[in-house]
Simulated assay, not measured.
Amino acid sequence: MAAVRLDQLRKVYPNGHVGVAEASFEIADGELLVLVGPSGCGKTTLLRMLAGLESISGGTLSIDGRVVNAVAPKDRDIAMVFQNYALYPHMTVAENLGFGLKLRGHKQADIDRRVMATARTLELESRLASRPAALSGGQRQRVALGRALVRDPKVFLLDEPLSNLDAKLRLSMRVEIARLHRQLKATMVYVTHDQIEAMTLGQRIVVLDGGVIQQIDTPMNLYERPANLFVAGFVGSPAMNLLHGALRYDGGWILATARGGIALGEPAQAAAWQPWRDREVVLGIRPEDLRPRDMGSVALCAQLEVIEPVGNEIFLNLRHGDQTLVSRVPPRPLPEPGSTLPLELAAGRLHLFDPASGRRIAT
């Protein structure tokens, strides 16, 4: 396996569109790093630059200490798994797995040994004689993964490999990929638009928007300390609640909105709020930190619009003036939609952002 280093990597298309802007980070040897973001954010473009399928407009790309900007894809010692399985329909599973090795001139005995070892790893031994049409979607995806594994490359690149699977198969294949990574200790770069995949698979996550890296961090740091409003709104399901208002202090911190003041109490991080006193801010609060309050201190009241029970938890869709909110609560008796619900905020779990730059206000 190998480390990968990007230094000011840039992609500009002939029409002037910037696909990737000055991407700089390092992927450690054996790390599973996820590139995530909405459609058009540059994540697949960046992956294709790593693979050599997209030319590099500027900056330096190194794999295992070797600059590969001008190195052909076949000479980079990488393997790529695509969104569509791209299996040869006329070949058996064994032939699909070994085809790349055959093209590279490996001896048949070596091909058979590697194919069998990969089939055991992916639990495909009983399907080696089958053709892709006889396989389930999950099995086809495992064959696509196996075709990359059998080569034992320095870096694995996975481009939304689970997007064609149904929800149950996606879950099982996420577990499969995580298990494979732990077993192989392979360097993997995984592209997805699905933040659940990103959070559950990635040791670190690169969040992109408009070709620009917004934050690189561990999954829980992204969730608990988003660097800006984009990351705050993108990471988490349901998304973070964002409330606009002016930060005031009157015996306690208050967010002054058009609907009145929202009591913020005296949270520990409030010392860092002093420079923002009497200034416009955006308050972020995760759905699980916005809780119905039966008695005692109430931060705000909101109208309950829709109740979404999803088994082990309930999502409450609320409205506070012209702002929509979501609260995540355990199963419990609830008032009818249309009722006014008093709410409290988890004081130690508040996030403040600069509305002009979108950046997190240090706490």
Rank of each mutant, 00 (worst) to 15 (best):
S163I: 03
L247R: 12
G40D: 11
L157D: 12
A347C: 13
Q83S: 04
G30V: 03
L6E: 06
H351E: 05
A263R: 09
G252M: 08
G321C: 10
T92Q: 11
G251E: 07
S62Y: 02
R286Y: 01
P38G: 11
E336D: 15
P342A: 08
I78M: 10
L242F: 14
R66F: 04
R170C: 13
L325V: 00
A347W: 09
R48V: 02
R127H: 10
L32G: 10
A178Y: 12
F353W: 05
D75Y: 03
A51W: 10
L350A: 07
A86G: 08
N221E: 09
A263M: 08
S57C: 13
Q274E: 15
A347I: 14
G100W: 11
Q183V: 00
L243I: 15
P287M: 04
E308D: 14
V68D: 06
A117L: 11
A144C: 00
G137T: 08
L32R: 14
I307R: 14
Q214G: 10
E313G: 00
T187M: 04
R151A: 09
D209T: 02
G138Q: 13
D217M: 05
A167V: 15
A79R: 12
V212F: 01
V36Y: 06
F99Q: 06
P335E: 03
R204S: 03
I205P: 01
A70M: 06
F353R: 07
I314V: 15
G265W: 05
Q8A: 15
P38C: 12
R104S: 11
K11H: 01
L316C: 09
A129C: 00
M199G: 04
I27E: 05
G338W: 06
L47D: 15
S297L: 13
Q214L: 06
T340K: 07
T340H: 13
L103R: 15
M295D: 14
A302V: 05
L247W: 07
T257R: 13
V191I: 11
D322V: 01
R151S: 03
L158D: 02
T187G: 06
Q269T: 13
L180D: 05
V4H: 00
A227I: 08
L149T: 05
G52W: 08
G284C: 04
L124C: 05
N312K: 07
D159Q: 09
A232G: 11
T200W: 10
N228E: 08
R204Q: 06
L334D: 07
M116Y: 05
Q139H: 08
G65E: 03
V115R: 00
G251L: 11
G321T: 01
E160V: 07
Q303L: 06
H181P: 00
S136C: 00
Q214I: 01
K74D: 04
E308H: 11
V310M: 10
A362S: 12
Q323R: 14
N96D: 11
G40V: 02
